[in-house]
Design a protein around this nucleic acid. Structure first.
Lengths: 329, 329
DNA sequence: CATCACAATGTAACCGATTACTCATGCAGC
DNA sequence: GCTGCATGAGTAATCGGTTACATTGTGATG
């Protein structure tokens, strides 16, 4: 493997000149530049960026922590994150935690050990991570909830689900089912708050039998749908906290002969691409995945470059997307 | 930021002893070990792995090149890849190329510049990359096609689509539509070969009007479905080269009042999770995504560790999954 | 002609770890 | 008591770049 010293020798200049020829060509005479260029071509020299980064104490790498890359919503966010990262000369280390704290810690320690310059966390931060060094580590939260410490970008989950429930109430619904995320997930909490706000205002009570706990996946949606299908009395509208779960719920209901939306309306959250390819197409709350991704990356790069963003919180808009899976009672 | 010298000073030992205490504790006396441990705790020392890796000339990072992370099939593969990588102490750099050769080259150059130890390419290699150093770069192809140079893991695309067409012929179908990937994509070619083999054997001709070019995405499936919907004469079965396209095709057909499978059967390829949550559920060819991922990572790590695998080719089985979207004529 | 500014280049320290090599010490065996 | 060996620990070179600082040469200016 050729290194800078070999190039210098071949070009008849010093290593400093070679280094400058590569990173500050304007500081090198045209003659030297040409000699260096020829030597580089001759030995097919590629600078060792591991060495460069080591010297610069920068890895030009960021970790993206997410619970599940197979969730199309996250896939969209990470695609946009990565776009922006690439534009700025950064690479994205995939940190699919699958809900494991140990894996999350492993990835965070990569930053502490300088293999990455920062972390973007694509989920609410459930653990108290201030003590884990959110102070010392460049850290941005995306897709989180109200009250997240540090810089963050998110949507207003409370207002979003509230608008969904208000819409359903306007359609005449009074009996609601809810499919939540895991109980200790903060998304579940915020989205539930929005639901309760709208229900309380309309003086509607939520039957606890009709609250099913899921984990945002298709599979858990199917289970919840089966649970609803096997009930004697059913809600007229089921609000799901993710599109994946909504699609699962619909699948389970339909396969048991319960029609959506004729017998029951079902709504989702996220507006993943499959939402408008489902049959029936899915009424849902659209999150701006691409904007969340690029904004989060921009924030993180600013933090990495030393800007003091403290608790900068960027809130992006959701949109109620009305499709076939909901109808008036 | 504390470094090894500071720990050594604090512990009253040499840097060599600290280094050994961390990586070869059995070579250090219990007394020194304890002093070092205390010093490490005292200054909250984290070894700089960037320095370590530089010294070792290893990045413990691999690049995964894929065309589109929002395709759930790739998401599943990469999840399994990453699992295995993490087990072995490696990290996964996400290389979503979105079909851009420039981006692909950017990622490959990260390996040449030692920021990554190897590449797993999750798509057929379309360009002649032997000259790009598939010889010098640790490189494994996954999800490719017959005749890929270097180590690879894949399914038999020809046999798979052939079995699908044979199944449809057995159901009585004679008029076939096909939704392909991009024309120059090698998957399209192989899968087409399988289709043609089965059709030729049954002496069935393919009408070129019924061959639609897509790009494996939902969107392109919708376009293809619209094209079929607007035809006067339609095939009785549409074979799609990805589940995403099949779901898009079904969506477009159904929204124009064409029933699936009563009016037309539609089949996919991949068996993504949405395939069995679609309405109708999708008849498709299942690829072992998780096995592909872990096998590819295992292969790559062997190559990185100097094993000579040459043209090792691992072929994993597909399975014909019959669901609701196909029926006898 | 002396002085100075500036451009181009070279020398060598440096980043933070690992590790080959050296050295000191202690103990067993004769 | 001497030799030989094992063990533990220290010294310093090393990885491949970057860059502060030193040096040289050139041309402009008074």
């Amino acid at each position: 493997m050729s290194n800078i010293r070999e190039v210098a020798r071949l070009a008849g200049v010093s290593v400093a000149t070679v280094s400058r020829a590569i990173s500050n060509p304007e500081k090198v005479s045209p003659i030297s530049l040409k000699k260096v260029q020829q030597a580089i071509d001759a030995v097919d020299y590629k600078p060792n960026l591991l060495a460069r980064n080591f010297r610069a104490a920068r890895s030009y790498c960021v970790v993206v922590l997410l619970p599940d890359i197979t969730n199309p919503f996250f896939a969209q966010v990470i695609q946009s994150l990565e776009d922006r990262a690439q534009q700025k000369g950064y690479a994205v280390l995939l940190g699919d935690t699958r809900g494991s704290n140990k894996r999350e810690d492993d990835y965070i320690s990569r930053v502490e050990m300088r293999l990455a310059d920062g972390v973007i966390q694509l989920s609410p931060c459930s653990r108290n991570h201030t003590q884990r060094g959110a102070g010392s580590i460049a850290w941005v939260n995306a897709c989180g909830v109200e009250g997240t410490p540090g810089p963050s970008v998110r949507v207003d989950n409370v207002a979003a689900t509230r608008s969904m429930v208000e819409y359903l109430i306007a359609l005449g619904h009074r009996k609601f089912g809810v499919v939540t995320g895991l109980q200790d997930n903060l998304h579940s909490r915020d989205r539930r708050v929005g639901i309760d706000l709208a229900l309380n205002k309309a003086a509607i009570k939520l039957d606890s039998l009709w609250i099913q706990e899921g984990d945002f996946t298709l599979r858990s949606g199917i289970s919840a749908g089966e649970a609803f299908a096997s009930m004697n009395k059913r809600p007229t509208a089921i609000i799901c906290m993710s599109d994946q779960m909504a699609i699962g719920v619909i699948q389970a209901l339909v396969s048991r002969g319960i029609r959506v939306p004729e017998d029951v309306s079902v709504t989702g959250f996220d507006d993943i691409p499959y939402a408008h390819c489902n049959n029936p197409t899915l009424t849902t709350l659209s999150q701006p995945a691409a904007a969340i991704g690029s904004t989060a990356m921009d924030l993180l790069l600013r933090v990495i470059n030393g800007e003091e963003l403290a608790n900068t919180e960027i809130i992006l808009p959701t949109e109620l997307i009305i499709r076939q899976s909901s109808k008036a009672i």
